[in-house]
Design a protein around this nucleic acid. Structure first.
Length: 198
DNA sequence: ACAAGGATCCTCT
DNA sequence: GAGGATCCTTGTT
């Protein structure tokens, strides 16, 4: 796990990018993580922050692919997304959960001394473990030494299911199987509702 | 200037 | 499985 993923990887259908991000590396703040759970937020998606058009907060999602979109949820959680699709299209992949590979001690400190899957199963937890804040919004993900996304082999099996916490979306989008997770991994939030990808 | 609403987390049952 | 904490962003006066 060493090479940075190029921008072209992100300039594709958001659901494909979300699935293929499983297993990839995430390095920042002295910590290396393996992505184990993602969600796709697509164009024309009623669960998407961009559903009401462009705003100061969601500007990064409308921008070029391969950059970070970090936003504050419930006034306290820093949520990491990776911007997808062409420049001018509002779409991104939310990183929901990860497995720790390096820096376990630092992660534990940032997560209030917790241990086990509670460390990293949830998007707010991932942001906290990586020491991210909104100053990282718009940051290019292929820049060495910054917030790095590293290439790695795809997992053996993938699970899919509906996304979490989007009760405000339409019935169609609320049920869409746009959440992806590494099969058999304990580092996944809300296991219920996930099924093997054909 | 104000009110409303969250892509969650944690602590209980 | 359910409910409260918490405070910024947004759209509306």
């Amino acid at each position: 796990m060493s090479s940075l993923i190029p921008t072209s990887f992100y300039a594709r259908d958001t659901r494909i990018v979300a699935r293929e991000l499983l297993g990839k590396g995430l390095r920042h703040g002295g910590v290396l993580l393996r992505i184990t759970e993602t969600e796709a937020y697509c164009p024309d998606d009623t669960a998407n922050h961009c559903r009401a058009g462009r705003t100061v907060r969601n500007a990064a999602m409308w921008g070029p692919p391969g950059r970070a979109y970090v936003y504050l949820c419930y006034g306290l959680h820093q949520m990491l997304n990776l911007v997808t699709e062409a420049d001018g299209v509002g779409a991104a992949v939310l990183i929901r959960a990860c497995e720790p590979l390096e820096g376990l001690e630092v992660i534990g400190e940032r997560r209030g001394g917790r241990s086990g899957p509670a460390l990293l199963t949830g998007p707010g937890k991932v942001g906290q473990a990586l020491a991210l804040d909104r100053s990282w919004c718009h940051h290019p993900l292929d820049e060495p030494g910054g917030l790095e996304v590293l290439d790695a082999p795809a997992p053996e099996g993938v699970l899919v299911g509906p996304r979490i916490g989007i009760g405000y979306a339409s019935a169609e989008h609320g049920a869409a199987p746009w959440r992806f997770a590494v099969a058999g991994s304990p580092w996944v939030s809300h296991r219920k509702g996930l099924v093997a990808l054909r």
